[in-house]
Amino acid sequence: MRPFLVRRLILGLAAVLGLSVLAFGLIRIIPGDAVMAQLAESGNVADLTAARAQLGLDRPFAVQYVAWLGGVVRGDLGTSFWSKRPVMQDLLAALPVSVELAVLAMVLSMLISLPLGAAAAARRGGAMDVGARLLSFSGLSVPHFWIATLVLLYGSIWFRWVPPLGYVSPRVSFGQNLEQFFIPAAILGVHLSARSLRLVRSSLLEALQEDYIRTAWAKGLPGARVLWGHALRNALIPILTILGSQFTYLLSGSVILEDIFSLSGIGRYVVEAITHRDYPAVQGAILFTGLVVVGVNLVIDLTYAWIDPRIRYQ
């Protein structure tokens, strides 16, 4: 196990290092720079050359990169050109919003997709199966931002209610926090469940064809135990894989919903940072997200062994 962990950590760090070069380079390739973006906002940068020098943008690319990477190694992601705050501070402020939205959406997605997918697989071709497939098809076809807009529009017309604006920590007010997150998380959760449901169903159908399931039936085990205890456990690996990718996607990819519900998560932070050509913020956020992706994938790989004792890492 230890050699595997060390190898994965080294590979993960190499991937993050490569990502850092890409993040650092790509934002600079986009036409327009941070000084131009500031000029657009204020119309008031008297000396563009001096402004670039002040931000350190006049130095060679490699020098800028090494200086930034040196800071990253020391835990300093730099200071935002725009907010003038440490990028780490900004990210830590945005992180709870994204994590809470992602976790809630995934929990809701699993609460929908696991029982429905299992029921659809157990009664293949039956009414439940048709209904589940229809639900999945609808969920994949209808854009979640459209549902979000409709929910807001009709929520405000019929009930004079929309979720509160701006983030409220659950430590400040649990009720208000839930009020704020429930709708966007439910919309995302339903959307995600459409994909998960199909996967649960197909994985279970495959597992249900296996010999050990026939043996379980032959032993006279109750149906629920065969389904949940034997088939589902063996079908969990692909489900877990997609859960991991969903989490990393949600962490920075739910930007449209964040925008609609006025939630300042990491996705919105990155979009704003790109618009303002806030290089340290973009680099920091991408690197941070990359680290999360590597970490989540590692955890999922380790979980495989826990789910399936046949898997051994060397």
């Binding site: 807009t149 807001l152 929520g155 405000s156 017309i157 004079r160 929309v162 604006l165 609609i260 519900f261």
Partner: peptide
């Protein structure tokens, strides 16, 4: 739509 909904619901 978000602006209109928030206003209608009294959030702003």
């Amino acid at each position: 739509a978000t602006r209109a909904a928030a206003l209608r619901a009294g959030r702003i």
